[in-house]
Design a binder for these strands. Structure first.
Lengths: 353, 353
DNA sequence: GTGAAAGCGCTAACAC
DNA sequence: GTGTTAGCGCTTTCAC
């Protein structure tokens, strides 16, 4: 057995209460006593058992983190931000990923409940219809959503304005020339934000009097885009000249697939992604995209979660600014495009209930 | 307060022992009793408190994961593999990253000890001199190293043959023409494997009677390569024509920096990286690299750790096969290069003590 | 089959 | 300042 507080107490000739007080700085201890206890701790190599403490205090100083997949750097970046803030505050992370599987969401949230994490930062497939979120509400566990599209003003959600960002993409694509647009989206079922982006994109296009863009869905988990591209470039009478892919990973895969079937980017088709993952800027052609402040989203979400744990009321959605990063995949700007609205930054607009 | 086993017992008119037996299938319970208990559980929404159970059994079904950074996809991929296997076996993950800081290694291992994780999968700066590893040994916590260079045959380590891989890179570079070679390495202090790769690389070069390559070190955490490149391309009389970067992220950064200072890749200099991160193949020029089976390494490490936890003896190093992936950044093959030793695969060679 | 009771390692009143 | 003691929620003998 490992060394316990009892062993330390015995060795220092004090009660376990005194040891506890010293370790947790939760009461005064005479200097000479403190010295004896410290020595005992050092000699025995005592490390307080967090299980005992957690059980006793019903606080674990553990935050759950539940994301779809680490394979997408956008989530890895957010987790990096979460890790940073959690560490600063002495919190530990319980990490889980769903691989875009809704059942896994429930299972993982179950674990968060069982292990009594103090709170959870998560991205779900669809917050409007999520048993995982229902569980959290029912068991009254604090949580903060990240990336998800806010559907309920009372739900703490750190994200960007996906609808507006979708509009921005449409504007940019149109400014670059293409008029026949299409969307390659993640399955609506597994990504509410993909859907919001698409909606904004479509709305802007309709406003411009252009025909409604065709949409094809791709499963994020498998990233099987070949069928989707076939639909777009073969069976359609109007072959699209501009493509909005609802995330960068998808855009990269699409660009690769286009290359294989002889469609040139951006000569034959302009492509814009979403997320702003770091490597996008190093691709060829460089990837045009909407940059989300992922690391910062992770940080803000963590701060917000800690505030809730500390007793503050849950805020509504917190919308962080996004911006367009125009890369070569969007093609050259059309001649009569306006001078330079190419980089477009939104103000930090925080919507509270 | 949450629902406890006591509440369930009361409601079902049984003792808490019976509830425990039913929940854990650890003893027989009469059918009708079982029914009553099950109903009580459902009605109350009871979820067994893992803290209580863990304290009582001194098993947490939690594995620690400690890596340098999630910003490098090579680690994210490994974590994905770990997550997969951990989930299959009902284990939970405690995630930590060090950002290449050795002090963080100790702090994180301390947390692993405090929380009584059943074991730990980790990558350290240098296993030959690691207080983090010492702590694990002293407290007798099972662990498996990943990516690290085995320095002690008794240490469970899942990795590739970094030295041989370094040799392979040298051979490939030479076959592609360059004769003036150099290494851009992570700081030896923060990456033992970078050092092993460099050693293999140098050894091969010396064998060929070529001059010893110059080596410049770059801090992985900051990735500040500009100074390193200046050293290489300005102050040297012999400007290198072939560069081995000890990881892909570094190689990508170097390629970017080369572009900015007017050095063309691969026309002026051939570049080979290490890791085989997925995006490498989509860069321009595509990145030549040594592919490590990261996901699989994560999986194997987890299986190995679980075996240790189950009581099996710790194995020695487990070496997984790597292979070269020649990309455009290595330049066109020299005319008199041998026909096709371009892809080079090693057999799975497991070294046991 | 089932229950009573003794822990697991710790914290937090409460007394002195 | 320090010690005693009653839990925190669970598992696990040991009787019956």
């Amino acid at each position: 057995m490992a060394v316990t507080i009892r062993d330390v107490a015995k060795r220092a000739n004090v009660s376990i209460a005194t040891v506890s007080r010293l370790v947790n700085v939760t009461g005064r201890v005479a200097d000479d006593t403190a010295l004896r206890v410290r020595n005992a701790i050092a000699e025995l190599g005592f490390r307080p058992n967090a299980l005992g403490r957690n059980l006793s205090t019903s606080r674990t100083h553990t935050l759950g983190v539940l994301i779809p997949s680490l394979a997408n750097p956008v989530f890895a970046d957010a987790v990096d931000g979460i890790t940073e803030v959690a560490r600063e505050h002495g919190y530990t992370l319980m990490f889980m990923s769903t691989n875009y599987d809704r059942e896994e969401e429930e299972i993982s949230v179950g674990k968060v409940l069982d292990y009594r994490a103090d709170g959870l930062i998560l991205t779900v497939a669809d917050p409007a219809d999520s048993r995982a979120l229902d569980m959290l509400d029912r068991f009254d566990v604090p949580y903060v959503l990240v990336y998800n599209q806010p559907n309920d003003a009372r739900r703490p959600t750190v994200t960007v304005d996906n609808v507006q960002a979708g509009r921005d993409v449409a504007s940019a694509l149109i400014a670059h020339g293409p008029r026949k647009l299409a969307v390659v989206s993640g399955t609506t079922r597994s990504s509410d934000r993909a859907d919001a982006r698409r909606q904004g994109f479509e709305a802007r296009i309709m406003e411009q009097g252009l025909p409604q863009p065709q949409t094809v869905e791709v499963d994020y988990a498998s990233m099987d885009v070949d069928g989707a591209l076939a639909d777009l470039f073969q069976s359609t009478p109007d072959i699209p000249t501009g493509l909005f892919c609802t995330n960068d990973l998808l855009a990269m895969t699409v660009i690769g697939a286009c290359g294989r079937i002889g469609i040139r980017v951006p000569d034959d088709v302009s492509i814009v992604g979403f997320d702003g993952i770091g490597v996008g800027a190093q691709l060829h052609p460089t990837l045009a995209t909407v940059v989300q402040p992922s690391r910062e989203m992770g940080r803000v979400a963590t701060h917000q979660l800690l505030a809730q744990i500390a007793g503050e009321a849950a805020p509504g959605p917190i919308i962080l600014p996004h911006h367009l990063r125009i890369g070569e995949s969007a093609g050259p700007p059309a001649s009569k495009a306006p001078p330079s609205p190419i980089t477009h930054q939104h103000r930090n607009r925080s919507i509270s209930k």
